Simulated scan of single mutants.
Amino acid sequence: MTTPELLGFQITHRAMRGETRRLAVLATELAEGRQTADVARAAAVGAYVTRLCAGIHHHHVSEDEVLWPVIERSAGAEVDLRDLSDDHSELDPLLAEVVGQAATFASTVSTGDASRLAALLTRLADMLDEHIEEEERLLFPIIMKYVSVADWEKVEKAVRKGGDIRTELPRIEEYARPEELVRLRRMAGPVLTVLLSLLRGGHRRRRRMIYGPLADG
């Protein structure tokens, strides 16, 4: 390989955007009475939202602390990261609001708290859509042109470190297209297949609790 492999980042971005939007829709339907939640389901939703927000926070902190210095060192004047860094600064207080409201909904199971959670998740989904589209448009060509494979592998290792493998790895499988999954398995080797087989069942049970019996459909 002579250029960085960006597939892992692409799928991670797609999964973060997709799950945030899906949770926003779910919270809206709970608020409007089109779906219902008992205490167990509300707790599962709250815990999953919290884990998702932790993953988003870890991802952008890894970009700030590891990826940005690599890009600045490799590309120099070719890139200006200030707007993307400002986006990250705006994300943190919103993530904290989402987590707090998810905990409130989990404890009250009220339609009012579901409505407030839906509004916050929709704001977060909109922000992620705009930010990630801009980040990939601006930075992916720069990374491909200037960043070495060795430096990129250090970035990916930093992003993986501290992540929640129980939810993030099966979620990558869910959001990867079939041909992308073939590439991932080829890059990671047999260990990926083993890990997915161990984690898939628990992931699907959690998703059925959160999204309902058709979550795997």
Rank of each mutant, 00 (worst) to 15 (best):
L199A: 02
H13E: 07
H59D: 04
G202K: 12
D38H: 03
L81A: 03
P170Q: 09
A150H: 02
M187S: 12
V155T: 02
D64M: 00
L95D: 08
Y211C: 07
R116V: 09
E29R: 13
D126R: 12
E134V: 05
E63S: 07
V61I: 14
R205D: 10
D86L: 03
I56P: 03
L128M: 10
R34W: 12
H88E: 04
A27N: 05
E97S: 14
A188M: 15
R116Y: 00
L198E: 03
E156G: 02
E97G: 10
A54Q: 14
G217V: 13
E133Q: 14
D113W: 02
R204L: 10
Y48P: 06
M1S: 14
V66C: 14
A103Y: 00
E174F: 10
G201N: 13
G162Q: 05
E32W: 01
L67A: 05
R14Y: 04
L139C: 06
A176T: 09
Y175Q: 00
A54W: 12
E174T: 13
L91N: 08
F140T: 06
D38M: 04
K157L: 13
A96N: 07
R21L: 15
L198R: 09
A118G: 08
R185Y: 01
A43W: 04
A54P: 04
V191C: 09
H203M: 03
V39W: 07
L121G: 07
P213L: 07
Y48R: 15
E134G: 01
R205I: 14
Y48E: 15
D92M: 01
A102E: 09
V149Q: 07
L7T: 00
A176Y: 01
V45K: 04
R183P: 00
K145W: 04
R14W: 07
G201P: 02
R14F: 09
V191E: 12
T20L: 06
L6R: 04
A119D: 12
V45D: 03
G202Q: 12
I142S: 02
R14L: 09
A215W: 08
L117G: 05
V109S: 15
E19F: 08
R34L: 13
R34F: 11
T167E: 05
I172F: 11
P213C: 04
L192D: 11
R208M: 14
V109N: 14
H59A: 10
D126Y: 09
G8V: 01
D83R: 12
L120D: 11
A24D: 14
E65D: 15
E130C: 10
E179I: 02
R22W: 06
I71F: 01
K145R: 15
L198F: 05
L192V: 04
D151T: 01
T2R: 13
Y175F: 15
P4Q: 08
G201E: 11
D92N: 03
Y211Q: 10
C53P: 03
G55V: 02
R82E: 12
D64F: 00
C53H: 03
G217M: 13
E135L: 02
D83Q: 09
Y48H: 15
G55P: 00
K154N: 11
